[in-house]
Nucleic acid binder design. Structure first.
Length: 561
RNA sequence: GUCCCCGUCGUCUAGCCCGGCCUAGGACAUCGCCCUUUCACGGCGGUAACACGGGUUCAAAUCCCGUCGGGGACGCCA
């Protein structure tokens, strides 16, 4: 399952063998180092569109720079992780059809995390906190500002700490964030390159973000965060950094909600003796109401599978997501995957949050589960059920892009994608007929599932009921409709069912009846399609065939009489 | 509450770093016209934005300060 590719390592080995001077080797290693990026979802729900975008940006960065894409399941929260969620995330990623090169699971690497934590402890950069969990939670986020540490815990002597631990007393391991008044405590701070330094007379933590620029935060605004919980499990911060260091991640591209966490991460990296990777934080995706997208509040629009089931093309969906918070800066918007890959760069990412512009529908709220964080059930996930998700559920630009990508597809491949959807509806269609129908509807659908409504009359034996008033043409009456239809019934048995002969025959018939072409065509169109809006008439008749056409015209005549 | 980030048409954005080519460009949506047997596609055009207030400067969307507004983070969640 683990695909390990380390081309640069073997190159290094080769260099050693060749006895290349070491200074040259360093240069070489530098220039050869392959970017390594990761997408690290935690399996506590379905695949969120925001996560999908993070994944896509990582992927684009990796592929653009000939780097390595890593998928890592951040599953250290035993309480909330579910296999169902893992499956759901893989479902979404599989649909996106973007591959990755290596795959890991944090729960397989707990030893590494603990080792890293205790190494930090041994350096004096972490301490045991015997304060019971959640003690004083109520006041914490209250009026008196940032909570920094539990009283007394920091000062506990090593001997006392060891004694209490040995006696079996539970404790959490906390990071000893450097404080000004104890700058001389046993630490390794100050060894360059260090993120900790004085700025404007204050002890500060610093890092550079590729998107947001230089970031500085006073150490006094960073609390002594936990590394290990009292049950011995690593926290997110620790596990994430230990793994990023161990996996030699070079660039961390993630949501801006992690921007302030990064100060902590930089501290962990340096305490663990690792060089922090390059960070790039992405602006957040928000809902029209201005808040972070959430399943509970905003419904199915935030789940990737909703887009899949509604008939988005993965490449269109990717294209859409890329345009939220990133721009190629050349006014191009409709881009293929390859074009995105070629154009992508961190410089094109902007800093302000982007609104996913959908209409908030009442049904969305009711269909969301009470805890808001659940995976769609099999029923919900099935395409049929999602017909309830209306077109206005989606950002109009996403819809437009999807339509563009649909039209850009060769008819054959579009037809191949449409066929299973039509068959799932229970309609038996040959690939040949599907192909012919496809070329008639490809400029008329925005979502793949639209084939079900736009082209239904090609597939059903019996037309759904329609109002006979529809048959009456512009500036005409029932008598006119009847006249047109009866004439059609008369001549069609002897006309070859191809575009030109049909065109000629029906136009002549209209002339003879003293009707405008439109007045002749409309009753026929409604008779065979069951509605006014449909693909061009002659091509439609051609696909439908003589028998069906005449049958439906006869039915329409009966309706009018 | 504390800290961090952000603020150009309804929405996504270009321009901002390196002030003048910006009477602010593109796209979606919207409205109108054209094409047309309906719908769609396509073509043409319209409406529509530099959050506000002060500086600096011959000149500010672009630089500085402040205000307001929005978002995020402050867990033994990730």
């Amino acid at each position: 399952m683990w695909l390990l590719r380390e081309p640069w390592l073997s190159l290094l080995d080769a260099a050693f063998v060749l006895l290349i001077p070491s200074n040259f080797l360093i240069l070489m290693a530098d220039s050869i180092t392959v970017p390594r990026v990761r997408f690290a979802p935690s399996p506590t729900g379905f695949l969120h569109v925001g996560s999908a975008r993070t994944f896509i940006f990582n992927w684009l960065y990796a592929r653009h720079n000939h780097g390595i894409m890593i998928l890592r399941l951040d599953d250290t929260d035993v309480e909330r992780n579910t296999q169902q969620s893992v499956d759901s995330i893989f479902d979404g990623l599989k649909w996106l059809n973007l591959n990755w090169d290596e795959e890991y699971k944090q729960s397989d690497r707990l030893d590494l995390h603990r080792k890293t934590a205790w190494a930090i402890f041994e350096k004096g950069l972490a301490y045991r906190d015997f304060t019971p969990a959640h003690a004083g939670d109520a006041e914490k986020s209250g009026a008196q500002g940032t909570w920094l540490f539990n009283p007394g815990a920091r000062e506990l002597s090593r001997a006392e700490s060891d004694r209490r631990a040995a006696s079996g007393e539970p404790f959490a391991l906390r990071f000893r964030v450097p404080r000004e008044n104890e700058a001389n405590s046993p630490t390794v701070w100050g060894q360059p390159p260090s993120a900790v330094r004085f700025a404007e007379g204050k002890l500060c933590v610093h890092f550079k973000d590729s998107v947001y620029g230089d970031q500085v935060k006073a150490a006094d605004d960073i609390e002594d965060f936990a590394l290990l919980r009292s049950d011995g499990m690593p926290t997110y911060h620790l596990a994430s950094c230990a793994d990023d260091a161990d996996l030699r991640i070079t660039h961390i591209i993630r949501g801006q909600d992690h921007l302030t966490n990064t100060f902590k991460h930089v501290l962990i990296f340096e305490a663990a003796g690792a060089t922090p990777p390059q960070f790039a934080h992405l602006p957040l995706l928000i809902a029209p109401d201005g808040t972070k997208l959430s399943k509970r509040r905003h419904g199915p629009v935030v789940s990737v599978t909703t887009y899949r089931d509604a008939g988005f093309l993965p490449e269109a969906f990717i294209n859409f997501l890329c345009l939220l918070g990133w721009s190629p800066k050349n006014d191009r918007e409709n881009l293929s995957l390859q074009e995105l890959q070629d154009a992508f760069s961190l410089e094109g990412i902007n800093r302000s949050n982007a609104v996913v512009n959908f209409k908030e529908s009442g049904s969305a709220v009711s269909s969301a589960a009470p805890n808001g964080d659940v995976i769609p059930t099999a029923r919900e996930a099935s395409g049929r059920n999602l017909l309830l998700v209306t077109e206005e559920t989606f950002d109009p630009k996403a819809l437009w892009l999807n339509a563009e990508h649909i039209r850009a597809l060769p008819v054959e491949s579009l037809s191949d994608r449409l066929l299973p959807i039509v068959r799932a509806e229970g309609w038996d269609v040959s690939p040949d007929k599907m192909l012919r129908v496809t070329s008639l509807i490809r400029e008329r659908i925005k979502l793949l599932r639209d084939v079900l409504t736009t082209a239904n009359f090609f597939f059903v034996k019996q037309l759904p009921p329609y109002d006979s008033a529809e048959l009456i043409p512009q500036k005409g009456d029932a008598a006119m409709a009847l006249k047109a239809l009866m004439r059609a019934r008369e001549i069609l048995p002897n006309v070859e069912f191809r575009h030109d002969p049909l065109d000629h025959a029906l136009r002549t018939a209209a002339q003879e009846l003293g009707l405008k072409a439109g007045q002749m065509f409309q009753p026929i169109r409604v008779a065979v399609c069951g509605r006014k809006n449909a693909p061009p008439l002659f091509e439609t008749l051609e696909v439908l065939g003589r028998e069906t056409t005449l049958d439906r015209i006869a039915q329409a005549i009966a309706k009018l009489q």
